[in-house]
């Protein structure tokens, strides 16, 4: 029996030695394809409990993440924004490849929590309310930037970040850049490139660049002649003093 055990252990050891290198290579290939990106550390262990951590380690990460997501939903209903941010951090750490989690976490922070902060009835000082609101904007930006870092192959987070810069930071240049990046993806919606040009047209010192982009879009055909594009084009033609004979678009005369 001892001889058999020795033979069995020897076979397993031989197999183990030959598979180790292959497994290491395969793990690297998986990581290059954005698999197994979850960051399970001791901080998370404290926050999600021993059982949750064990489940996450044993291949049930997504179920644990869903449970935390539902908890965050409960926290939202109770307007516990701090707890929500904490739970969102854990959810996105468990499921870094889930674009929806990053996007909705940022949306909750940038739109819901920030709106609550500026109207917070418990805070009479406006300066502190504005400060809190800006902190939530920054949190939303942080979620989206980390989301992009983990999902550089998906347009959605680039678009959400651009919208955040446009609507909350009033930073049209950065918005234009991120819409532009979103437009580079093969399956991104066609409006991304228009939005990039619109935002650039609102940036001082970038009018000429924006005008060229808008003209390029205008020349793509009637499908692109949307009211915003035409009005931004007309605005830039006026602002840049484009001679009438060089203008690509002439607005209809007002009745």
């Amino acid at each position: 029996m001892r001889k058999t055990a020795a033979v069995a252990v020897a076979i397993l050891a031989l197999f183990g030695a030959s598979k180790m290198h292959f497994e290491q290579q395969l793990a690297e290939e998986h990581r290059a394809a954005f698999f197994h990106g979850a960051k399970l550390n001791l901080n998370m262990r404290q926050q999600i409990g021993q059982l949750g951590f064990l489940a996450a380690l044993s291949g049930f990460r997504s179920v644990v993440a869903d449970y935390l997501w539902i908890e965050a939903h409960g926290a939202w209903e109770r307007t516990e924004w701090g707890r929500m941010a904490l739970l969102f951090n854990n959810v996105t750490a468990l499921e870094p490849r889930n674009v929806m989690f990053w996007d909705l976490s940022a949306w909750h922070m940038g739109y819901n929590a920030s709106n609550f902060a500026i109207r917070n009835p418990k805070e009479p000082r406006q300066a502190l309310r504005i400060k809190a609101q800006r902190e939530y904007f920054k949190l939303a930006e942080d979620f989206l930037l980390r989301g992009i870092e983990n999902n550089p192959d998906h347009y959605k987070l680039f678009e959400s970040l651009a919208t955040l810069y446009k609507e909350k930071f009033d930073d049209h240049y950065k918005a234009s850049q991120y819409y532009d990046k979103a437009a580079q993806f093969p399956f991104s919606p066609s409006y991304e490139k228009r939005f990039a040009a619109y935002e650039l047209s609102r940036c001082p010192d970038h009018e000429q660049e924006a005008y060229e982009k808008l003209v390029k879009l205008y020349r793509m055909g009637e499908n692109e002649w949307l009211p915003t594009l035409l009005s931004r084009l007309n605005y830039l033609q006026e602002k840049l003093n484009i001679p009438p004979d060089q203008r690509v678009y002439t607005p209809p005369a007002k009745k």
């Binding site: 397993l12 183990g16 290939e29």
Partner: peptide
Amino acid sequence: ALFFPDLQLFNLVDDIVAGNTIAMGLFVKT
């Protein structure tokens, strides 16, 4: 590492459901 199987390599479900796609070659290897 020598005697135990690396089960993490077979935990592709979470990431695939999240929207990740797996190349055929990589899947065949796994």
